[in-house]
Protein backbone atom coordinates (compact mmCIF):
# COMPACT_ATOMS: atom_id res chain seq x y z
CA UNK A 1 0.00 0.00 0.00
CA UNK A 2 2.77 2.40 1.02
CA UNK A 3 4.58 1.54 -2.21
CA UNK A 4 1.50 2.48 -4.27
CA UNK A 5 1.18 5.81 -2.39
CA UNK A 6 4.85 6.53 -2.99
CA UNK A 7 4.60 5.75 -6.71
CA UNK A 8 1.43 7.87 -7.03
CA UNK A 9 3.01 10.81 -5.21
CA UNK A 10 6.10 10.62 -7.37
CA UNK A 11 3.99 10.58 -10.54
CA UNK A 12 1.96 13.54 -9.26
CA UNK A 13 5.11 15.56 -8.60
CA UNK A 14 6.44 14.85 -12.10
CA UNK A 15 3.13 15.86 -13.68
CA UNK A 16 2.99 19.09 -11.62
CA UNK A 17 6.53 19.99 -12.66
CA UNK A 18 5.66 19.53 -16.30
CA UNK A 19 2.49 21.63 -15.95
CA UNK A 20 4.30 24.48 -14.14
CA UNK A 21 7.10 24.48 -16.65
CA UNK A 22 4.54 24.71 -19.45
CA UNK A 23 2.89 27.64 -17.67
CA UNK A 24 6.15 29.54 -17.43
CA UNK A 25 7.32 28.96 -20.94
CA UNK A 26 3.96 29.91 -22.39
CA UNK A 27 4.73 33.58 -21.75
CA UNK A 28 8.42 33.61 -22.56
CA UNK A 29 9.64 31.17 -25.13
CA UNK A 30 12.86 29.67 -23.88
CA UNK A 31 15.84 30.97 -25.76
CA UNK A 32 17.36 28.19 -27.83
CA UNK A 33 20.54 28.45 -25.89
CA UNK A 34 23.98 27.47 -27.03
CA UNK A 35 25.13 27.68 -23.45
CA UNK A 36 25.52 24.95 -20.99
CA UNK A 37 23.65 25.57 -17.75
CA UNK A 38 26.89 26.60 -16.08
CA UNK A 39 27.45 29.38 -18.65
CA UNK A 40 23.99 30.88 -18.55
CA UNK A 41 23.66 33.96 -16.38
CA UNK A 42 20.93 36.45 -15.73
CA UNK A 43 22.59 38.58 -18.43
CA UNK A 44 22.07 36.06 -21.20
CA UNK A 45 18.74 34.93 -19.72
CA UNK A 46 17.29 38.41 -20.29
CA UNK A 47 19.33 39.98 -23.08
CA UNK A 48 18.77 37.16 -25.54
CA UNK A 49 15.02 37.33 -25.04
CA UNK A 50 13.58 40.12 -27.17
CA UNK A 51 10.03 39.70 -25.88
CA UNK A 52 11.09 39.97 -22.27
CA UNK A 53 13.31 42.98 -22.97
CA UNK A 54 10.53 44.75 -24.79
CA UNK A 55 8.36 44.35 -21.74
CA UNK A 56 10.84 45.73 -19.24
CA UNK A 57 12.80 48.27 -21.34
CA UNK A 58 12.80 51.93 -20.38
CA UNK A 59 11.16 54.18 -22.99
CA UNK A 60 13.48 56.16 -25.26
CA UNK A 61 14.06 59.80 -24.30
CA UNK A 62 12.23 62.46 -26.34
CA UNK A 63 13.77 63.66 -29.59
CA UNK A 64 16.02 66.68 -29.03
CA UNK A 65 15.85 67.87 -32.61
CA UNK A 66 18.66 68.57 -35.06
CA UNK A 67 22.16 68.02 -33.80
CA UNK A 68 25.41 66.60 -35.03
CA UNK A 69 28.80 67.73 -36.16
CA UNK A 70 29.00 68.70 -39.78
Amino acid sequence: MNGKIFKFSFLLIVICMLIFQWGCTEKYEPVPSKFSASEETSCTHCHLNAALLEEVADPLPPDEGESGEG
Binding site: V31, K34, H47, L48
Partner: peptide
Protein backbone atom coordinates in the same frame (compact mmCIF):
# COMPACT_ATOMS: atom_id res chain seq x y z
CA UNK B 1 16.38 47.89 -25.35
CA UNK B 2 19.61 45.92 -25.38
CA UNK B 3 18.90 42.77 -27.32
CA UNK B 4 21.95 40.60 -27.97
CA UNK B 5 21.94 38.18 -30.90
CA UNK B 6 23.20 34.68 -30.24
CA UNK B 7 25.67 35.01 -33.12
CA UNK B 8 27.64 37.40 -30.95
CA UNK B 9 28.72 34.53 -28.75
CA UNK B 10 30.50 32.92 -31.66
Amino acid sequence: MVHVEEDFFA
